[in-house]
Every structure is written in structure tokens, then in C-alpha cells.
Design a protein around this nucleic acid. Sequence first.
DNA 1: CTCTTTCGCTACGAGTCGTAGCGTAACTGC
DNA 2: GCAGTTACGCTACGACTCGTAGCGAAAGAG
Lengths: 253, 253
Amino acid sequence: MSAAQLPVARDTAGPRPTDRPATAGESPAGAAGTTAEDTGAGSPGPEGAARAKGRPRSAAADRAILDATRETLAELGWGGLTMGHVATRAGVAKTTLYRRWPSKNELVVDAVATLFDELVLADLGSLRADIEAVVREFAELLARPETQAALLALFAEGTRDPQLRRRIREAIVDPQKQLVRQGRAYAQARGELDPDLDEEAAAEEIDIIFDTVAGTVEHRILVSGEPVTPEWIRRFTTLLLGPFPHLVGGGPA
Amino acid sequence: MSAAQLPVARDTAGPRPTDRPATAGESPAGAAGTTAEDTGAGSPGPEGAARAKGRPRSAAADRAILDATRETLAELGWGGLTMGHVATRAGVAKTTLYRRWPSKNELVVDAVATLFDELVLADLGSLRADIEAVVREFAELLARPETQAALLALFAEGTRDPQLRRRIREAIVDPQKQLVRQGRAYAQARGELDPDLDEEAAAEEIDIIFDTVAGTVEHRILVSGEPVTPEWIRRFTTLLLGPFPHLVGGGPA
DNA sequence: CTCTTTCGCTACGAGTCGTAGCGTAACTGC
DNA sequence: GCAGTTACGCTACGACTCGTAGCGAAAGAG
């Protein structure tokens, strides 16, 4: 209560109120400059120009932070991750983190979203093969600690904070639904599905299948804590596709 | 470094090194005294006698703590739950919590385990009806904030701490699997299932069905964040039981 | 009535989140 | 080149939480 205190406000309340970073494509091999493709946040402001005055944010710092987050997540898990730790590991100041992400949750969601981009769906010639392949991929992804921690971060406040929930949906959930759509498209092109299909009904089927595949694998790994073996995948796919196992008559009307 | 300090150790390192509380059955209506049925923790010590000397732990405090935990969970969620808050709400000292549970995680698991006891499976006359009923019950349970927070606590350190994982499995997961077994038994008694069934194969089917039902509903509610309507339940049950919707030919070989 | 254990209380150390304020570095347009 | 503007690293801080320590007192057990 006696030292010099000057009322200054530089970083605080700046024009970039702690928003998303570059969030670039970020291919495995560190490519060249990347500046497009924002994670659709909210403000649909102009894009063309008028947005370049002072020192630009370091794209290298962005990547270093996201990498450090993933690494720390893999090593220490969700509970062990601290902002200070990430900052040190990334070689930046803690304040730099908070300039980009409002809190731990958002950082983790962004850091992990790219992990799910690994999932792809190749046309393997049959619906069964496609499903088994994507289940296997998803299971391998979920076996990694950083992904598990991500799911956790996702639940952590996601069920309470609507904004975080939106971020998760847009960055992770919705893109993955595309896989199911893709799989159906393949199957339909191969003539495996009813050709004249109510579009609305199909949309709901997609939701159900998505929740079923993702949820079941998650539960198997995270809750039951048992491994996803090829045999298990085969059985699960059979449950999905075929009639109920051992059901007399082969299924309901 | 000058005040009086006597090296005393009463509570600390006592014969009950912060272990499970009564963990009694705890039916909805507060019943009489309950002292049996420990949550199988670890020490397989003698049970008969020799374990009653000083002042016994207050069973009322146990219940007050667990109730307060559930209430706080419902109001503030997992992130908002603090031991101090629970203690105040339960009208006990914080140290009393730590005398019973080693940490937040264990407390929440125990507090929430009883919630899942609500789930029951009545023989409704058909496999479809039984499944739909249990899915509805489970969905209603998961719609409650305290249950969501429980799932979260379950994941929080459960994927890292093997001991906590065991506690979760024994207190929550395994008992729920009984529901699937029950359902199969009903169906088999009704003649809906293949009568001569490899027992081992049946066991694996039970695991798959359990993960599928629980995981799908969890994913629908917690990740996708969409409601579980009767229509959705019907569709999901159809997916489970019947052939793949719109699949040409009615299913694979 | 003694002995044992629990209880509530206060206090504490360690750690974390997220913020403030500064001086400086980097990049802009003129 | 030169301002102007912004990001960066640093140190410090307030508020909060976990989990523990130690005490006097209460409540039962034998």
C-alpha cells in the first residue's frame, strides 16, 4: 500500500480477447506457414484485411504449446496437467497460454482435436469390413493416454459449460459423424443399403450408429477397462450388422 | 519455532488407516443399523470380533457425508465439488471426511454407487420390452447431474489409478452387468434364445451387450448431448436386436 | 471408571488457477 | 528510417483447494 502503481493496460482487454489460436491443419510433418481454417468459433468478422497491426502471434509458440499439451497429457494424464507445466515444456510464459486460451479445458480440447483427424474411412469393399476397420482405428486412438485425457476434459466441464460443449462438438464430435455418413455412402454405392431411403430417417440412423460405435468402444476401454481385440471387433460388428446373436428366429419383425 | 509442541499421534496412523466406511445397503428409506457388507477393499482381516474398542464411528455422519456429496454433485458438478463444501454441508469437520476416504475420488465413487442400485430389470414378457425398459431407466439415471459427475469422477483418475479402478468396477460396473445376465436368463426361460449355448460365448456376449447399451446411452447423453426419447430407444433397440436397418437382404451370413 | 477411538476445531504447507503490471521484442504502415 | 501497435517473458500476487497436524473434548467399550 505504498509502492508505485501505474494504471496501465496493454495486453489486458486487447482487441484479441483470448481467442482461438491459429488451429492450423498441422500435418504430421511440420509443413510451411499455415494461416487459414479457423475453428469456427463465433465472430464472423471480416477476413480479408484490416487485421494486421502490431507484432503477430508466434505460430511456433502455438504449435509448441499444443505439442507440449499433448505430451504432458500422455505422461501425466488430465489430473496431472497444469498450465505451468505446459508452459515450461513449451518454452513459453504461462501468460502466453492465457493469451490464447481462456482456460485449461479449451486448451486441451484444441490440443486433442487434431488427434481425431487421424481417423479415416477407406472403402474396403463391404460394410462389415469398413465398420471393423473404423472400430479398430478408433480403439487404437482411444488406447492412447492423451486421448483418454481428452475425453475426460471433454466431460469435465463440457456437461456444464455450454460454450465449451459447442467447442467440443464443432471440433471433435461433428467431424467424426462424417465418418458414418461416408460409410453409408460407400455401402449405398455398393448396393448394400435400401436405395430409396427417407433422408430424415437416415440422418437419425447416422446419429444412432455414431453413438453406438463411439460409445461402445469408449465404454469398453475406459469403463470396463478391457482390451479391444480383433475377436471382439468381429463380435461387435456382428451385433451391429446382423441379427441378435443366438436369437431364435433371427430377429424381430 | 518456539511454541509448545507435543509429539502426539492419536488419529494419525490409527488402526483404521483411512478406509471404507459402513458402505451399507442403504435402501431409500433409512433403515436400521447396518454394519455388514463391506465394499471389498483389500485387507481380508478377520470379521467376527476383536474390532470394537473405542468410540465407534458415527453412522449418521457417514450418511450425512454421502448425502451431502450427492447433493453437492448435483448442484455444482464434479469441478465444483470441494471437500470443504461437503464437510460444511454435512455438518462435520473436514478431517472427518479424510478419516473415511483417502481422497475426493473415492468419496464420490462411494457416494454415487448407490445411485446405480436403482436399476432393476423386470420380466416384461419379451426381450425387446426388457431392453427398452432398462435403456430408459439407465437414460433417466444418466440425465441426473450427480450421475454425470460420477461418471466423470470415474474417469478422472480411474484410468490411471488401478486401485480406484478396482473400486469402481466392484462397486458399480460389475453389479450392473448382472442386469444383462438377468435379461438373458429371462429371455432364455421364454425360449427366445438358443437353448444350447456355449457358456463361454455367452459370457463374452454379455460383456459386449453391456458395453454397447451402457456406452451408447452414455455417449448419446454426455458427448452428443442429445435427449433419449422413446423413439430413440425404439430405434436403438431395433438396431441391437434386429437386422441392420435398411440393410439389403436382412443381414450378413 | 478407565481406556480407546472418534469428533470438531484451527492452523498449516504445498500446489494450482488465472490475473496484473512491467520492460522489451517484433512487426506494421508511413 | 520512424512511430505505433501488439505479443512476449518475467515476477508477483490473490484466491482457492487438497490433504495433514495437533489439540481438547465427547462418546462409547469393557
